[in-house]
Design a protein around this nucleic acid. Structure first.
Lengths: 166, 166
DNA sequence: AATAAATTTCAATAATTATTGAAAGTTTAA
DNA sequence: TTAAACTTTCAATAATTATTGAAATTTATT
């Protein structure tokens, strides 16, 4: 297999993965393209490679920057902006975990916690309150654990990962 | 807050969560309804409560069964099928982790592993191979860890979770 | 300040994904 | 074996989500 083909397939694979994770295909394709690329790319290069419009590139690159997965570069003497993505899988996972915790887990904890204020005292109501309490407890534990990952350094993470397996 | 309201909001919250995780809103709403419900429900009851069509209930309940999140009940003397969902968050998470590992992580490992067969030996090709190798290694580690979770019992999981935090 | 280069926005449109509902298929019971 | 009760399928349609592209805006250069 040639380098070019491999990169094209990687972009394809990564794009499909993203879409099964609720991230849109174009966003993950751009991310993959930048991961696979030695040097930062301009909007024009991304448009050209992925055959998508300027507006689309702009919106999805912005989203990637929001997620902390891509950064802007200003090259001295150039007017254009360039974009690059970090290549370390652990850093990528950490960034994604941090954002999802904030965006998805925290709101659930908040909501489930509020819902437990049920006035009824029927057996059914008590049961449901109990289900919610368990859910809150579980979600808090997961959220705390993720938070540790996010704040930890790479070696700590791998050590723990290994300790889980053995 | 009354029990009915709380259940309605829970269904709402859980539905929204699912859709940010690439699971469709109706599927997670049905799941939430069954979690919140004391007894198993029939297709008609689900249709009625969520105001969705029979076909939609059938398809999404089937998907939930595929995911191992819902089971069928036959009540003796009744013609209808009834459905229920497990209420233990740990069991739910385990089931979801098991399925996603199989459906999403394993194919990525396979794909990334294949992609490393790049013939080129330019510095750029070597760099990219290296990125892929790191990605494969990371994904394998995550996959193994998830697999441990999946095979483990509840207490083991919580003990490990706690050991990570402290 | 005028111009050029690049970026951003967003209404229109295209593409995708979810939902309906009626017909076909199955199962159970008399 | 017929009919009623229930489930499944799937083509048509609705709803949602992504994409385009041209106009508006911003930023840099002369």
């Amino acid at each position: 297999m040639k380098l070019k083909e491999a990169k094209a397939e990687f972009i394809q694979t990564w794009g499909a993965l993203g879409s099964s994770w609720g991230i849109n295909r174009t966003m993950s394709s751009i991310h993959a393209l930048l991961i696979a690329s030695k040097d930062p790319l301009s909007a024009d290069e991304i448009m050209d490679y992925l055959k998508i419009s300027r507006g689309n590139v702009n919106m999805n690159v912005r989203a990637l920057i929001d997620w902390g997965l891509v950064k802007r570069h200003m090259i001295p003497g150039e007017r254009k902006e360039y974009f690059s993505a970090g290549k370390d899988p652990w850093e990528i996972a950490r960034q994604v975990a941090a954002e999802r915790r904030k965006r998805e887990l925290e709101p659930v904890i908040e909501a489930v916690s509020q819902l437990q204020k049920i006035e009824d005292t029927s057996a059914e109501a008590e049961d449901f309150k109990n289900t919610l309490a368990q859910l809150e407890d579980f979600t808090r534990k997961v959220s705390n654990t993720l938070n540790q990952f996010v704040k930890s350094d790479k070696n700590w993470f791998f050590k723990k990962l290994m300790s889980l397996i053995h």
